[in-house]
Write a protein that binds this DNA or RNA. Structure first.
Lengths: 221, 221
DNA sequence: ACCTGAACACCGTTCAAGT
DNA sequence: ACCTGAACACCGTTCAAGT
C-alpha cells in the first residue's frame, strides 16, 4: 500500500531551491510565499514549518548565491586568484539578478559568505598586503564588483550587438538631445551605437585598473 | 467666508516631498500609498490624481535625489571636479539610503539624472579622455561610487568609534571564529576593533585609486 | 510530526459617487 | 476639478484544527 501522490516531501532545501528558481524567472518583487507554495503544490502555510518567515527565506537564498562563488586560492598568483573570484561573482550575480543589492550587509551572514570573505582576506595577506591595505583592497574590489553588477542589472541589453540596436532604436531622440546634452549625444551616437557596449570587456578593464592600483600601493609601502 | 481647514493643497511636488521624507525615516519597504496618504492627511486614493502609480512615484523620488547631486564643472581641474561630484553623490545617498540600488537603470531617467550624466562625460572629454576611455572611466567611477554606497548602507555603524564598539561587542565570537576563519579574525580583532573603520577615509582612498588609474591610462594613450 | 483552512491586518489600484 | 468610500484581488502570518 503506497501513499498516493508520494511527491518529494517538503524540506527547507527544496523550498529554498524553488524560491531561487522562481526569483530567477520572475524577480524578487514577484516572489511571494503564496506563489512559491503554489509552485511546490502545497498550501502557503506549509512553508512556515520549514522557514520562519520570508526574510529568513531570502537570507537562505542569498547564501546559495554565495555558494556558487568560487573562493580565491590562498597560494599561487594573487592577481589571477582575485580576478577569477571577481568573474565568478559577476557570473553568479548575472544568473541571479534579484540578488544584486542584497549580498552585502544582511544581518545574518551564512557560512558560505563568511568562508568567501575569509579566503579573499587570506589571499591578500599571503600576497604581502598589510592589514590596513588588505581592508582597503577588500573594500575597493567589492565596491567595484557589486557596483558593476548593479549597472549591469539596470541596463536593458546583454550583448554588445543588442546595445547597438537599442541605441539605434532610440536614434530619433539623439538629435533632439544633442542640443541640450552634447556629451551624452556624442557618446551614444559616436561610440555606443557604432561598436556597441560590451559588459565583459568593460568589467575586465575596470578590474585591471583596480588590481593594478592595489599592486602599486602594496609595492610603495 | 474661508474654506475651513485650508491646508496646503495636494500637488505632485508635495506628495513626492512627503514620500522622500517618509522613506528617509522608515525605508522604502515601509513606504505605502496608504501610509503616505495618512501622513498628508488625505484619503489614499487622492494621491492617484497627481501620481499615476507607486512605481512612477518612486521614479520621481529618485529624481529628487539626483537633483541634490552637484554636477562636475566642465572646466578647471578634472580630478577635483570629479572628486567633488563623487562626494556629493555619496552624501546624497547617505541622506537617502533607500535610494541606494535604485539610481541606475530605471526605465525613465529624469532631467536631473541626464544632466548629471552629461556633465560627467563632458568633464572627462574636456580633460582629454578619448571617447572610449571616457565611457570606461564613467563605468568604473559609478561602479565604485554606487558599490561603496551599497556597502555603507549595509553595515550597521556610521562612525569609526561605533564600528570598534560593534566589533568589541561581538568579541566572544572572535576566538570561536579564529580557528575556522583566521584571516577574518585577524582583520576584525587586529585592526577594525583597534582603530575602527572610517568610511570617509576608505571612500577617499578607493576614489583616489580609481582616479589615479584613469589619469595613468589617459596619459599612456 | 507534518500539513492545512479560515481568519486578520495589511497592500496597490479601480470605479462610481460625492462636493 | 478635485477628492473619497467601498470594493477587488492580492499580500505575510497566526492559530486552531485536521491527518
Amino acid at each position: 500500500m503506497q501513499t498516493p501522490e508520494t511527491r518529494t516531501l517538503l524540506s527547507k532545501a527544496r523550498i529554498v531551491r524553488a524560491a531561487v528558481a522562481l526569483a530567477d524567472r520572475t524577480g524578487l518583487e514577484s516572489l511571494t510565499m503564496r506563489r512559491l507554495a503554489d509552485e511546490l503544490g502545497v498550501a502557503p502555510m506549509s512553508l512556515y514549518h520549514h522557514v520562519p518567515n520570508k526574510e529568513e527565506l531570502v537570507d537562505e537564498m542569498i547564501e546559495t548565491v554565495f555558494e556558487e562563488i568560487e573562493p580565491p586560492s590562498l597560494d599561487g598568483d594573487w592577481r589571477t586568484a582575485l580576478r577569477r573570484r571577481a568573474h565568478s561573482t559577476r557570473a553568479a550575480l548575472n544568473r541571479h539578478r534579484w540578488a544584486v543589492g542584497h549580498m552585502e550587509g544582511r544581518a545574518k551572514q551564512g557560512p558560505a559568505s563568511v568562508r568567501l570573505h575569509d579566503a579573499v582576506l587570506g589571499c591578500l595577506r599571503n600576497a604581502g598586503f598589510s592589514i590596513e591595505l588588505t581592508v582597503q583592497a577588500y573594500s575597493v574590489q567589492d565596491a567595484y564588483i557589486y557596483g558593476f553588477a548593479l549597472q549591469e542589472k539596470g541596463l536593458p541589453f546583454e550583448t554588445a550587438e543588442e546595445s547597438a540596436t537599442v541605441a539605434e532604436d532610440q536614434g530619433w531622440q539623439i538629435e533632439e538631445l544633442a542640443a541640450q546634452f552634447p556629451y551624452l549625444a556624442e557618446v551614444v551616437a559616436g561610440h555606443v551605437a557604432k561598436v556597441g557596449y560590451d559588459f565583459g570587456e568593460a568589467f575586465e578593464y575596470g578590474l585591471d585598473l583596480v588590481l593594478d592600483g592595489l599592486a602599486q600601493r602594496r609595492d610603495e609601502a
